[in-house]
Each structure stands twice: as C-alpha cells, then as structure tokens.
Design a protein around this nucleic acid. Sequence first.
DNA 1: CCGCTCCACTCAATCCTTTTACTAAATCGG
DNA 2: CCGATTTAGTAAAAGGATTGAGTGGAGCGG
Lengths: 346, 346
Amino acid sequence: MAAEKTSRPTMAQVAKLAGVSPTTVSLVINDDPRAKSISEPTRDRVAEAVRSLGYRPNHAARGLRTQKSETLGFITDEIATAPFAGDTIRGAQDYSWKRNHLLTVLNTGGDPSMEEASIEMVLGRQVDGIIFGAMYTREVAPPRSLERTRAVLLNCYAPGSTYISVIPAEKEGGRTATQILLDAGHRRIGFINGLGTTYAAKERLKGYRQALRDNGVSYEPRLVRNGNYHSDSGHRHARELLTGENPPTALFCSSDRMAVGAYYAIMELGLSIPRDVSVVGYDNQLELAAYASPPMTTIQLPHYELGYTAARYLLEDAPSNGQGGGTVHEIECPAVIRDSVGPPPN
Amino acid sequence: MAAEKTSRPTMAQVAKLAGVSPTTVSLVINDDPRAKSISEPTRDRVAEAVRSLGYRPNHAARGLRTQKSETLGFITDEIATAPFAGDTIRGAQDYSWKRNHLLTVLNTGGDPSMEEASIEMVLGRQVDGIIFGAMYTREVAPPRSLERTRAVLLNCYAPGSTYISVIPAEKEGGRTATQILLDAGHRRIGFINGLGTTYAAKERLKGYRQALRDNGVSYEPRLVRNGNYHSDSGHRHARELLTGENPPTALFCSSDRMAVGAYYAIMELGLSIPRDVSVVGYDNQLELAAYASPPMTTIQLPHYELGYTAARYLLEDAPSNGQGGGTVHEIECPAVIRDSVGPPPN
DNA sequence: CCGCTCCACTCAATCCTTTTACTAAATCGG
DNA sequence: CCGATTTAGTAAAAGGATTGAGTGGAGCGG
C-alpha cells in the first residue's frame, strides 16, 4: 500500500533512522580503524538500520571518492575462444572475489586498435588493475596505455618491460613428460613437438633434453619432430617415427590432439597402447585425453592457476605502472597419470 | 622535467583549456541532443582540448549522477567450468561492447548463498542488468534479489516468472538430427538420449518423434535409450542396440561423448562408419567431434549466440524488474555436417 | 525601436560516500 | 579542582560528471 520507494536507500537515510550522522554510518560500515571510538550500542543501531532498510553502499559514489573501483579488467586476445578460457577466467574471478573485487572481461580478437580501446574503456572505469592475457604463451608488446595502471601479463611476457608475467612452466612440463616415460623404462622416446618457433615448443624441447641428459640417455635428433598441434600432423609424424629404423618405444606429443593422431597411427600399424607403444600427451584437454581409449596420460596446463595467480599478483604485489621488475612467474604443469604409459616391449 | 600530473584530467580542466564551461564540455562529449545549439568552432575547441589532455570521463562520477553503470553482470552456476563457457561469455561481451557496456562475470559454483552474494555485489555497483545463467538447460528458481534489476535467464527458465529466457531450441535440434538420418534413407534410427529427466532430453525426444511422424516412420520405443552423456554409457547402449534383433542402421546420440562411445562399440563389432552404421552426435564439442574418425556429424549448441542474445534482450527489450512477460526465446541449434552419415547398408 | 524568439552557452544543484577537521562531554593524573 | 586526554561522535568539503533553469546578445517582425 505504501508507495514503494523505487530507488535504493542512501546512507543519509540509514543515518537518520539510526539517529547518527552519515559519518558514523560510514565508519561503522567500513569498519574503519578510526571507528574504534564508536560505541557498541551505536554500532548496533547502525547495523540494524542497514538491515531494515536493506541498505547497500552505492559503489559509484564510493569509487568517486576513493578513486578505486574494486574491479579488475581481464583483457585477452582470443583466449575466450579457447576451450580452456573459462578456467582461466574462473581462476582470476575466484581470487578477485576473495579480495572483494569483481572481474570485467574483454576480448579483443587480437586487433590492436581493439586492445587500445579496451584498455581505455576499463581505464575510464578506474579499474584497480588489468590482467593482459594471450591465448598461447608468447612474447608481446603491450600497448603503452597499459602503463597507466597496474598490470600483470598472463600467458605472455614482454622482455625489457617491468611487468610481472605469469606463464606455465613449459620446460619443466617437458621434463616431467619425458621423465614419466624414462621411469617406465623407455630409452628411445619420440618427441612430436609443436611449432618450433613458439615459446612452448622451445621450452619443452629443453625439458625433454634435460630429462634425457639427467638419465644418461643420449639425445637423438631423428626422434624429434615439429608438428602443428593438430591431429593429422600427430598422425603423420607418429607413423613416420614408428615405421622408421629402430623406432621409439614411446611418444611424447606436445598436444593431446597430436597424441590422438598418434593413437590412430598406432592402431593402424596394428600396435597397442601401452603394450607396444607408450604415449604421453600435453594440455589435458578433458574431452580428448580422458575419453581416449585408453585414457591418456598427459601434462596439464594450469589454466585456473594462471588466472588465479595473475589476479593475486595484481592485487598483492604489482606496484603501480608496471614497476614490477619484470619478474616472470612460472606455474607448474602437473602430470595427469592415466593408462597410456607402460614398460617398453620385451 | 615538469612534474608529471599523475591524476587524470577532469572535465573542469578540459573546460578551462577550451575556454568554455564544464556544461558545454559535457554536452559535446555525450553529443547530447540539446547540444545542437553548440557551434562547430566551440565543438572543435572542446574536442581538441580533450585530445591534448588525454581526457576520459570519470565513469564513477558519471555513474553517480546518471544512476547507470554501463555494465552488465553475468552470474552463472558452473558455466565457467564447462568447456564452452568462454563462447557464451564472449557472445555476451561482444554484444555488450557494441552497446558500450562492459561485462562483469561471476560464478557461484551453484551455491545459493553465493548466488545471493553475487547478485548483491553487482547490484551494489548499479549494474544495468544481470544475465543469470545455468550450465545445462533447466528450470531454476532465481533468487528474489534478482527482481531488483533487469534480468534475463540464460540456458534456464523459471515458469510463472516474468523473466525473459534464452535457451537452445532442443526440440528442433532433435528433429534436425533425426531428419538428417531420415534424409539419408534410414528407417530404424536408434536414439541414445540423455538423462530422461532433463529438459534437453525431453525436448530432443519430442523432436525425434516428430521427425519420424513427419516422415511416416513409426516410433519404436525399443530403439530409444537413456544414457548419462558419458562415453561409456554411449558405448554400452550402442552395443546393446546394435547386437539386438533387427538393429538400427543409424544412431542419434544426445552428446558427442556418447557418440564417441558408440564409435568404439561400432568398431569393436567390426562395423564401419558410415558404411554400416551412421552416427549423429550432439554438442559439437570441437575436440571430440571434429577430430573423431571419421569426423562426426553433429548438432551444435549455440553457446555464443545464447550469450549474445541474452545480452541483447537485456539491453534492448527487458523491461525493469523482470516484467518481461516470461517469454522464452529459443536459439537454433544448427547441424554440422561431417562424414559420419551415409545411406543405410543394402 | 520595442518586444519576442533563438542561439550559444553558463550556473548551480545534485548524485552518495569518504575524509579532514572539529567539538562537546567525560575521564584522568596530580 | 584544573588542564590534558580520550571518547564519541558531527559538520562540511571534496570527488567529477550531468542537468534543469537561466542569461546576455543577435536577429526579426511590426
């Protein structure tokens, strides 16, 4: 019956109801350190007034005064297209939430003018920081405008800059994969790597070689191929490796897709996994790796952790204006053990 | 040398530089309809001042005055976990961007208290609307607090409410899949459906039956099974269907995962796709369907479009406070034709 | 040349919190 | 009992845009 007050209650209304000044309400609500001088009864009256009016602070007004938005911007090239994007976003959002921040996502489609516009857009909203992410790990030259706020680079790095970067520990991932096969007893391990020019491929190769070295196995270049991450290239390279002379007894593939291609090649050759050939993939693309037959042992990219960690550095450590000393933080790529690895034949 | 002005320029500074009042600057910037009375030269001076100072309006201040945030909230249960989440978010963000809005994402993990908290959080930021999404299509009871703003339901519906809903056209999807097989000449079509209780399963079954009816094929309950969307249940049901009496010549599976399971069953039985058995999947989970062998014909869930459309209705049509008349908008699920369908044997 | 309408803007109030500077009353040490 | 602190608050300014109400001058009809 009473006319519904359509607009939300303001702090002044709360103050009036509680019989105090807006200042007091503000102090109580934010429980400001200086508010220890406010008595328990007053505090309660304020709390009660807040509850009964359903008061929530107006974020715009607060932001105007404090110059903070409690919001993080998440700007990426194409990450939102990739199947793992959700995980990264979720990681970043989870940490943000812990710190009472919200996450605003923007994807630029890789268009530099869109990147610029996105940064301007979130800057206009006084975001407290920006996570600038790339779809695959690589070197980037972030737009200058990024320097106008705190920022952390996710899945990319800018040598010579002072941004903090968060990327997967690819070298270690390559080492882990290789070590799993070495531990199973393999000595001739084929490596179907990704495009030789990418960061991931270079690092994984380092990891592969290091694992061999650490185990006293000599490196044979003929066992290493560069594929393009797609299923058919995995198929082709696996076939070539396995039909060559003195074929490998195990394959480490730099993507689950290529590993699936390798699966087909192995089947076609009348061989069986892991009895005749062991396989380790990379990515842990759930659908592919887990539902393969047999379920595939693979190395997982830490998507969620990348997002979570980037948000954490942004809110915790990154000093303003990119003065982060250019540290690169590597996040571990854990192994997911399934059924595609066994001892070598004989 | 000059002390770097660290804080961003304000409208007053622009006004002073251009030799006009802040009002004028405001009118020019927003090119307000009432600003047609502002002369071209003045307009240019303002624009020039804006450029030279690198001025960007303070969003908080504007929001405070206008009671708008130009921000949409995207609240979901677990959607961000699902592999397709990125697409939905991207769709919503793309449309928001077109309308000069930003998208803030929140995922609740399905926890009702978290749902409530999320809504309160974005409400505190005066979002212009909320997209409330579910991971799989189902009926929901949205929290009451959602009524305090405009909202659109994505991938879910609330019967009896007045929210606009945007969901995939599952019945039509089921019909399409079945029709593809009928068109290829099949008359005994096995249907490995999902959990019988879900919206998707019920609707797809309706579509399946309607397609049969439209083509004068009688419905045989023995050909319909309920799986659990996972690979192994597809495997089991396919095996049972194909080894039974008078087996189907084609299988329609309600998920790509089950279809992959069916693939294995078919292989095990020494049959070949599509020569002996045709298969149609559902979801178009890229990795699974496209890299299967042979590549799988499937029905695509319109994730991007769902997000895009939800944002569109939110910004265009949805009147405040859920007064949307409870319309449910169905988004088409297009077929993706690959190589797993052919004519029946003989 | 008077009054009126337009034109091209400007003034000042407003949105809602936070924060600095202050004050009145109570307490305390000596 | 005095002056100094502490307690428990308050008043008012500030933060940066938008907007309703106004203003001074030019142009125009009569």
